[in-house]
Design a protein around this nucleic acid. Structure first.
Lengths: 137, 137
DNA sequence: GTCCTTGCAAATGCTTTGCACGCTG
DNA sequence: CAGCGTGCAAAGCATTTGCAAGGAC
């Protein structure tokens, strides 16, 4: 598990059961979880955990690069554990399911843009929305 | 101007001075404007306009496809007038400026994904963040 | 004249913060 | 045992909504 190492390396950060729990949930969550869902699942293991702790844990993980935030739909944020930006999301307008695509296009664009404009790209996000095979028609 | 025709064509929608004003501001706003900025500019022309009217106007324009909403940064939404999804945004983490790129990649991905997965893509958005030539180093 | 739109104020939903106590390193 | 992390409650923002009055067609 990467959490322990990373947290302990970062000066002034401590390892707690709450953080371990939140990180575990985000890592396992195949789908992209919202803060509320992470909170709900966390309470099943630790009923005393608070929503602010969930948010603060997520914030720390983002800061350490362990978790990536994405903006699916127009609603709240979604989180997923350590990936390196070469995939993107496809949200079905019909059923709300999120399909994840691995695709080198993000990296490709990244390189081309960086070369063309002198930009240093730090992160890339791509979101498509439409209808999945079941929902279209 | 496309606003009049489009509004009048759509059944049960009416043309008002407030809507004209809001649409004009979004159209001219070279940068991508947030609701608060649109509101601020609108008040300079019409001090009695309310923020809810701005939001409702934007909502109507989105519905009619006249305006596109994007999620730059993690903050609030930004709006821009009628484009056809073949461009994307690059946000500088240093100075906050938004650079807009025309690039056929979105269309390309769209077609490939649609073919591969049986998806019908309705809209696509791509956001990159990083450092512009002035801010990096 | 009908009924869509506006303005105001209050409500909502997600996220953040202040503060005293608890626990990690 | 110093100081970061937690829980609770309350605050903060962007956005939405209810309602009566106003305006477009």
């Amino acid at each position: 598990m990467k959490l322990n190492e990373t947290i302990l390396k970062s000066p002034g950060s401590r390892m707690t059961t709450q953080r371990a729990l939140v990180f575990d949930i985000i890592s396992r969550g195949g789908v992209h979880l919202g803060a509320d869902e992470i909170y709900a699942r966390a309470r099943r293991k630790n009923p005393r955990i608070s929503l602010s702790t969930v948010y603060r844990a997520i914030g720390k993980f983002k800061e350490l690069g362990l978790v990536v935030e994405s903006h699916l739909g127009q609603e709240h944020h979604h989180y997923e554990a350590g990936r390196n930006g070469s995939h993107f999301h496809l949200v079905c307008i019909g059923c709300g399911s999120v399909i994840e695509f691995e695709y080198p296009v993000v990296k490709r664009v990244r390189d081309e843009i960086a070369r063309a404009g002198g930009f240093k790209i730090v992160s890339a996000e791509m979101n498509l929305s439409g209808y999945c095979p079941q929902c279209r028609g």
